[in-house]
């Protein structure tokens, strides 16, 4: 037995910079790339006018994975999420630098059709926002817009399939012609998810999809996320640590516009490497 084992051991290297914002060379802790990426992002900077909101973020979204993005308010996680389907284009003062690719294709290239991009990268928002149309028309709208059905019966099939995948069919099959806005909050959110998946996206972005829902409706959405991940990649921004832990396979922690740490959710929530991640998820700072 070597009595000096403690002294001889090689120290574990940790990147524990407390002030990543002032560290221009800050490198995200963990593996930002994945072998089977549906979307890749490299060195992404986002500015609102003169103010920089995102600093040099690189992060891949794997195929059929649920990637959770967490962090305090204002850390840039929603801003980053909105870069992934060019939702930030609607903000005049917003400027994006870096490289974001969907299946190897630069989504910010001049040739990219933004409407088509948003069909391939669907989005579900914090507050359910069904169109003021019937349940059926809400789901059929995008399908018609992109010309994805060959006939009325084909459209019927797509709508039914989307509602089934969203776990809503049994609850609305007898009232497809009633207004979508008449459904409960949780049903409306699942309707929005049905609307997003009806046009067969590759990735679904979810920005706080359960923050306006009660625990039962939240559980249904979480169950749905699990089911949907068999067919799609999902990026979810959430303020609920437990939700991130429950639904995702990978978790990314943002802080002051930087991606501090990314890793397997199981590790992030039991033994994170960066003290800022630990501090945030254990409720030691806000």
């Amino acid at each position: 037995m070597n009595q000096t084992a403690i002294e001889d051991a090689k120290p574990i290297e940790r990147n524990n910079s407390d002030d990543p914002l002032n560290d221009p060379n800050y490198k995200t802790v963990g593996e930002v790339t994945v072998p089977n990426a549906a979307m890749t992002t490299k060195n992404v900077d986002v500015y609102y006018g003169d103010k920089q909101a995102i600093y040099n973020v690189s992060l891949d979204v794997g195929k059929n994975e649920v990637l959770a993005m967490i962090g305090p308010s204002g850390c840039g996680k929603s801003t980053f999420l909105r870069c992934l389907n060019r939702m930030n284009d609607t903000i005049d003062i917003c400027r994006i630098e870096g490289d974001i690719r969907l299946d190897g294709e630069d989504i910010y290239s001049r040739n990219m059709d933004v409407v088509l991009l948003r069909a391939r990268v669907g989005m579900v928002f914090q507050k359910p926002n069904p169109f003021p149309k019937s349940v059926y028309d809400n789901v059929a709208y995008g399908v018609n817009l992109h010309g994805l059905s060959r006939s009325k019966s084909d459209l019927d099939d797509i709508v039914e399939d989307a509602l089934k995948r969203a776990g809503l069919w049994d609850e609305v099959s007898d009232r497809l012609n009633q207004p979508g806005t008449g459904l409960s909050g949780g049903q409306q959110q699942r309707l929005c998810i049905a609307r997003a998946i009806a046009i067969s996206p590759e990735i679904i972005l979810m920005d706080e999809p359960c923050s306006a829902l009660d625990p039962i409706a939240t559980a249904k959405i979480e169950e749905l996320i699990d089911e949907l991940s068999k067919h799609y990649s999902i990026c979810i921004v959430t303020h609920s640590m437990q939700q991130a832990a429950r639904v995702s396979q990978r978790t990314a922690y943002f802080h002051l516009g930087k991606l501090i740490e990314v890793g397997a959710t199981d590790i992030i929530f039991t033994n994170p490497s960066h003290r800022l991640t630990e501090g945030y998820i254990t409720g030691r700072f806000g």
């Binding site: 084992a5 403690i6 051991a9 090689k10």
Partner: peptide
Amino acid sequence: QTGEDLRHVADDEFLKSIGKH
């Protein structure tokens, strides 16, 4: 402190692990 489960490792390994942190 570290998240390492050292219940089933040899004492030598145990001490090495402490030294790493």
